[in-house]
């Protein structure tokens, strides 16, 4: 039995996840090897110590603090039925290649792709007029790492962080009657954004293509999708703000847990 096999066997037994064969195999091994017996006993002791650690009591008043922070207004809850613009577009175009093509053509005129900026170089970032591409519903093995929303000050917005192995995507849906700006600010340094796509009432201007802070004017039902490489950020953390000039109307934070950065 290799060290790895023994290690896994011992841990299965410690967790009570062993089969009868596992138990027999372990008894045989630790009966033949003092070092492995010692190793098993030490691991068992560690698990016992951990299991014996007493829970800590929350401080008095925490319950009241929690309850005081809960809004009495049920409308603060996210609406599960709220479907993102991307999802609507995706569902609309699935199985309708003509619509999908038409959509791509129309959106292609509205959409900026910063990937080209990354290719051409930052000095061209001031002129985004030629950087249009096509926007497709997001595909691939992305999973939702975080999501949040705000509904206040006449602005309803939601943001989601999507991840796959080497890339991240931040999608923001905003619905507002007035003109605001969506500001995407990564907490960690970003060297390149390789994709920016806009929908609805969102606009892109070349002057706003700043790696530290992406700004998009929005009005009405709008959507912003930005993407980048996870290696650029380490653990992906980002603040999405809705601003009116210098006034911050609302802020949303998106963060990947350390675990997913593995």
């Amino acid at each position: 039995m290799t060290d790895t096999d023994f290690f896994e066997l011992a841990n299965r037994v410690i967790d009570g996840a062993e089969s009868d064969d596992d138990r027999t195999a372990l008894n045989t091994v630790i009966g033949q090897s003092m070092s492995r017996r010692l190793e098993f006993e030490q691991l068992t002791a560690v698990a016992s110590i951990l299991d014996a650690v007493r829970p800590v009591e929350p401080p008095e008043g925490l319950r009241n603090r929690i309850l005081a922070a809960i809004p009495r207004d049920p409308s603060r809850q996210a609406a599960a039925s709220r479907v993102s613009i991307w999802q609507q577009i995706s569902e609309f175009t699935v199985g309708k290649p003509v619509y999908a093509l038409a959509y791509a053509a129309v959106v292609g005129l509205l959409v900026g792709a910063l990937g080209l900026v990354a290719v051409i170089g930052p000095e061209t970032a001031g002129d985004a007029s030629g950087t249009y591409g096509t926007m497709a519903p997001i595909g691939g093995a992305f999973s939702v790492a975080d999501q949040t929303q705000i509904d206040m000050n006449d602005v309803s917005a939601s943001a989601v962080l999507l991840l796959r192995e080497s890339e991240f995507v931040i999608e923001v849906d905003v619905d507002t009657d007035d003109q605001f700006e969506v500001v995407v600010s990564p907490i960690s340094e970003v060297t390149t954004w390789y994709g920016v796509e806009l929908g609805g009432g969102a606009k892109l201007t070349g002057a706003q293509l700043d790696p530290d802070e992406l700004r998009f004017p929005v009005v009405g039902a709008s959507a912003v999708r930005v993407s980048g490489l996870r290696a650029d950020l380490g653990v992906v953390q980002c603040i999405v703000s809705i601003v009116d000039g210098d006034r911050v109307v609302g802020e949303m934070m998106l963060a990947e847990s350390d675990l997913r950065a593995e």
């Binding site: 800590v56 929350p58 603090r65 809960i70 809004p71 603060r76 996210a78 609406a79 039925s81």
Partner: peptide, 30 residues
């Protein structure tokens, strides 16, 4: 609170985390 305390090892952080968690749970219940 216990999970938060064991991870942050700080009582104030654990309190803040616990409060935030319940707020997020409430807001995202749907």
């Amino acid at each position: 609170y216990n999970a938060a305390f064991r991870i942050t090892s700080n009582q104030q952080d654990a309190e803040d985390v616990t409060q935030t968690v319940f707020l997020k749970v409430y807001e995202n219940l749907r």
